[in-house]
């Protein structure tokens, strides 16, 4: 598994380098630069990744966006560098604003595709989205997340998978990015696809003290929190045991069914394979980050 992903990363990086070379040979002035590259290189847009051109070109992926974005077709032309040069400056500015909005909305759809997730994963590993401000998260990298998928409602927030909480971006530049350009699902989709990236959860907690003594009210709340944690842990373990029992029953049923023993064995194996990750829930180590 590990070596496979390394090889994959090698190819991704090699591909990136090639592309960079291509651009460098062709970008002597701002005019020859691609719109997307210009957009990504702008300050404050560090959270965006490059959406594949094929993804933008496939109209199916843009379904419904024409009603969201003004001057949709011109904006799309601008993103794909097909816009006529004979627009006046005022119009150009309006179209550019639309293009930025459109790019953001396409971005939200792209980053939860398989390829989009790998691109964002790479940014996550480089800590492009910053690190968790919580002291006990020990600078864990963050991921962008929205609180609403509707544009112009909430700005982007940052999700920490260690404490499972959301934070405001440090810089006001990032704090003004629309959350809809990332979507509510993105970080959770990423961890569903790459569950090995979920860090081991700690029970570490900051304990306030006055002259070395714990505070009674806070200690009570902490005991309550501990109870909730133990309850949920018990529920999860019970759920896993329940699954195991179900599996066992299935296995017995399959074994009992005469004539199809071979086939049953195969299914059995598949089942146990697919369930094994959920059994290692608590020890899901995070080897790649940090």
């Amino acid at each position: 598994m590990g070596s496979n992903t390394h090889i994959l990363w090698f190819f991704v990086f090699a591909g990136l380098e090639e592309r960079v070379d291509e651009y460098e040979s062709g970008t002597d002035s701002d005019y020859t630069q691609y719109w997307v590259d210009w957009f990504l290189s702008r300050k404050g847009n560090e959270y965006f990744c490059e959406v594949d051109e094929e993804y933008i070109m496939d109209r199916f992926n843009l379904t419904g966006l024409n009603t969201e974005v003004q001057y949709y077709s011109q904006a799309l032309d601008m993103i794909t560098d097909n816009l006529d040069d004979n627009l006046d400056d005022e119009m150009r500015e309006i179209v550019e604003k639309s293009a930025r909005h459109l790019y953001g909305l396409i971005h939200a759809r792209f980053i939860i595709t398989a390829h989009g997730l790998t691109k964002m994963l790479e940014k996550f590993k480089k800590c492009d989205f910053g690190r968790c401000p919580r002291v006990l998260c020990h600078n864990h990298p963050l991921l962008p997340v929205a609180l609403s998928d509707v544009p112009y409602t909430k700005s982007v927030k940052l999700y920490c998978c260690r404490c499972e909480d959301i934070y405001n971006p440090k810089s006001s530049r990032h704090a003004s990015i629309d959350g809809a350009y990332y979507g509510c699902s993105f970080p959770h989709m990423l961890f569903q696809v790459y569950p090995q990236l979920v860090p081991p959860k700690s029970t570490e907690r900051y304990v306030p003290r006055i002259f070395g003594f714990k505070l009674h009210d806070v200690a009570k709340q902490h005991r309550h929190q501990d109870r909730i944690r133990e309850d949920s842990h018990a529920r999860i373990m019970a759920g896993i045991e329940g699954l195991q029992q179900q599996q066992q029953q299935q296995r017995l049923a399959i074994a009992a069914a005469a004539g199809s023993q071979k086939k049953g064995g195969e299914e059995n194996q598949q089942n146990s394979n697919s369930k094994s990750p959920s059994m290692t829930t608590e020890s899901g180590a995070m080897a790649d980050v940090n």
Partner: peptide, 12 residues
């Protein structure tokens, strides 16, 4: 919460 990457820290 039974998902491998499901919520585990809500107690915090």
């Amino acid at each position: 919460e039974h998902s491998r990457s499901g919520p585990r820290m809500q107690w915090l």
